[in-house]
């Protein structure tokens, strides 16, 4: 049997792109909204301990500086990995900068993002170094989850 192709015009072959473009824009909007540039401080090298009480703060902390501590007890500050001894100079500079901008280091908050496997003693040493440079407020950061144990 011979199949006869129906005669089609050139216009009928044009696909309708509208639904695809609609969907693509929807996807872009979805990813744009979810993309959180503010969480750039989060470092993949640090696996935070989890706590069910760790709720995100309602208002952003003013004058906050983030000190991160890796699992092998190295300090990560301003994107720079250093031993704990190197933190002193950085903190002194931060304290001086805060003072020059008319604020007090006592009013600033040190956000401490320490790895769950890091030693408590090293965390205490970081706190001690911050205290020596005039910082008094600390925020121990934890993952918002149900506790593992």
């Amino acid at each position: 049997m011979k199949i006869i192709k129906p005669k089609t015009t050139a216009a009928a072959l044009e696909p309708d792109m509208t639904p695809m473009i609609d969907m693509t824009f929807q996807l872009i909007a979805f990813f744009m909204v979810l993309l959180n540039f503010g969480e750039a401080e989060q470092d993949a090298r640090i696996r935070l301990p989890s706590s069910q009480l760790a709720k995100p703060p309602e208002t952003a902390l003013e004058n906050a500086l983030v000190v991160q501590l890796t699992g092998d007890n190295q300090v990560l500050f301003s994107g720079e990995l250093m031993p704990i001894a190197g933190l002193d100079e950085k903190l002194r500079r931060e304290a001086r900068f805060i003072t020059l901008s008319g604020e007090k280091p006592e009013d600033a908050t040190v956000i401490l993002r320490a790895d769950a496997e890091s030693k408590t003693g090293v965390v205490q040493e970081v706190i001690q170094k911050c205290q020596e440079n005039g910082f008094e407020n600390f925020a121990l950061r934890a993952k918002q989850e149900d506790e593992e144990s």
């Binding site: 706590s51 760790a54 407020n137 925020a139 121990l140 934890a142 918002q144």
Partner: peptide
């Protein structure tokens, strides 16, 4: 895009 878990703080005040 990366899935980030929410983080929260325990605020402690520790003067020298």
């Amino acid at each position: 895009f990366k899935i980030v878990t929410q983080e929260g703080d325990f605020n402690i005040r520790m003067p020298v």
